[in-house]
Design a protein around this nucleic acid. Structure first.
Lengths: 232, 232
DNA sequence: GCACTCAAAATTGTATACAGCACCATATTC
DNA sequence: GAATATGGTGCTGTATACAATTTTGAGTGC
């Protein structure tokens, strides 16, 4: 049996998801004993996983008091969006210089093939997954593992808010309209890349993300109301 | 007797430095028992610190085989420099929009006051510290904690190579010339910021870092020769 | 009602024990 | 001699125990 996934890894992945979706409430203290029995492991591997998550910015740690969920505030989310802009604009720049015509054409095929899914999809979670998958495919073409790595971390930490945004803010406009705007931004960036128009690709990507960033404050407000409201 | 800094934090800081300067050789396996006695602690807190460093990219981990030092290759260093470009150009962009005239003037004072130190300084380590301090002061003006955080991590991971670069590559040109080039780049960026010339500030910063990036392959070669040569 | 004290309970921090896997050297077979 | 078994050694993975610390809460005085 290939224990490629060790127990710590299993716990880590699980906790990472829980933290990403704020199953720990912002700033809430994490009880190690309770969590360890819940996860069916002892405190030793649990704490190892928790320490990794601290280093990744999902949790905080206070000596003598233990682990806490990261806080949630508009400022923190704004910072994450800004970091995304930094990373994704540079990614687009690198892709424009490094990706082959063929790779870009493949990506265009991928984009076209998923368009029907975007239109038909009603589940915000799935919609977000598709969007992230597309952004990560572009990222891969940058040939920079470090940028990919940072982007993955940022995406995970901002995902819950993006989900709220998608569900409660953009839900106001008709579905067909919002997804089309999204899709069109994707298409515009990719077309610019194919034409090797770096400036256009970069600035389109920048505005694509910044538009969402500007909704962050409102999204955080809604997120709080969701987190502290009894489940339906 | 838990101090404000817990034992794990102490171990963590120590290991972080050791990893930054490749006191663990690239890809070398880390013996937990030996290291724990060396640090005067048991394996439990040691492993917690090691897990944090894995999450930060200083170490790697293989299930069942333990912890290893991160590898060192030109590609990895290039990636780090590229990530630095991404972060620092966005930082400059934000600073240009957000920093007050007063803050920028203060920074100019700081720059001027350290110029004599740059000229007189013979120690590459100190030179690098001053350079990093300056870059971090700019970063702070961006008001983005996330970008600051990412930049700190990147700086720590690339520091050893920058040191080698400074010591063995740029040592070839006369000291006065190289430090002046460095200083002048700093001054050009800052002047552009004061004039609110975003494009100039961003592109100068970009080239300032990219120039070093282009030396990375050679620097890594030298780094290897230094790491595996008996100490002087 | 409010602040303060102090002991009990809960929780974290770390050492240690031990099971099991990985690695290495030696032996064995062809 | 090369390739493959095999046993020993050392290391990692995790549970558990216990000390140290923080938190809680009841009781007391004002």
């Amino acid at each position: 049996m290939t224990k490629a996934d060790s127990n710590v890894d299993r716990i880590y992945e699980k906790l990472r998801k829980m933290a990403a979706y704020f199953e720990f409430k912002p700033d809430a203290r994490i009880n190690e004993s309770a969590l360890s029995t819940e996860l069916g492991a002892s405190r030793t591997p649990l704490r190892e996983a928790l320490n990794r998550l601290v280093a990744e910015g999902f949790l905080t740690f206070q000596s003598g008091r233990g682990f806490f969920c990261r806080p949630l505030s508009p400022k923190l989310i704004l910072d994450l969006y800004e970091a995304r802009v930094a990373i994704e604009t540079e990614i687009v720049r690198l892709v424009c210089r490094r990706a082959s015509d063929e790779e870009l054409q493949d990506l265009m095929e991928f984009l076209k093939s998923t368009e029907p899914d975007y239109d038909s999809c009603e589940d915000p979670m799935e919609l977000l997954s598709m969007d992230e998958a597309y952004h990560m495919r572009i990222a891969a073409l940058s040939q920079s593992n470090e940028l990919v790595r940072i982007l993955e971390n940022l995406n995970d930490r901002v995902r819950y808010i993006r989900l709220v945004d998608l569900k409660y803010l953009r839900g106001k406009t008709p579905v067909s309209t919002q997804e089309e705007a999204q899709l069109s931004a994707h298409r515009v960036v990719l077309t610019a890349l194919i034409n090797r128009d770096e400036d256009k690709a970069v600035s389109t990507m920048r505005h694509h993300i910044e538009r969402r960033r500007d909704e962050a404050t409102e999204a955080v407000r809604i997120a709080y109301s969701q987190l502290y409201v009894p489940a339906d």
